[in-house]
Amino acid sequence: MTGLSAGDLERLKTIAARIRRKSLVLIFNRGSGHPGGSLSCADILAVLYGGYMYVDPARPDMRGRDHFVLCKGHASMALYAALSEAGFLPDDITSLPPDHQYLQGHPDRWKTPGVEMSTGSLGQGLSVALGMALAARLDGCGGRVFALLGDGELDEGQVWEAAMAAANYRVDNLVAIVDRNGLQIMGRTGEVMETEPLSAKWSAFGWNVVEVDGNDPGAVWEALDLARSVTGRPSVLLAKTVKGKGVSFMEGRPEWHAKAISASELERALAELESREKGGGCE
């Protein structure tokens, strides 16, 4: 059982639903984007930006704050939606013109308030997060670093260089979260490139591994707390998610990795999300 109150949990679920809605509208407006991987990580982002991370939009450079790196930079619209929920970006972000500088295809730290690191080339974010964690440790003000990776991204060798180094340096203020939705562009992750057994791999690299339902905000919060309680080594959340989560015709379908959304599809998707938000379709 999570330490969150029922009210807190409801609030996080609402934030997650709003992140999903905003992500899809942003992708529709731009005529391009990555719906599947944005929807799969919405609950994780809702937890991080809905209160778990120590950040303050009024003081974005605050010393000792927590940091976030979206290693899977293609889920940019979900990040912008989360930043809008957290107050870094306008609440009505979906009414920005689609070519607004805030809405880069992949996050750019100079163009979008709240984005700590420019990302997009897969496999590089965890190294950067490690450097940030080392800097925070030297600073001694308690800042922690959260890095969200895709599971397809784990094909990149640099991820494992960073994994090895993070354990070597015993950085316990670094948390990697793998959005384990099981799909990448060309199909199932295991069919494209077998990365399992993930838990054993991360363990063997010296990480504290926490397996969690990544589409359950309460469980994600609890897993982050578990990670925090382990000292002397970095933690990874293997967050089992559904790609396209929340929209029936996108769930589990690799073709929704990167795809424009039509007006009628958006209408159907938003109707589904709305009914789920109100408790209609929740498991």
Partner: peptide, 28 residues
């Protein structure tokens, strides 16, 4: 020694980690 990191034979991680340290306000 506290401000030195031998990241091993891993140049990709070398550059990324340096980037992160710079983000943290250091001069790597």
């Amino acid at each position: 020694p506290d401000r030195f990191y031998n990241v091993g034979i891993a140049e990709q991680n070398l550059m990324g980690t340096a980037a992160g340290l710079a983000l943290g306000g250091l001069t790597p």
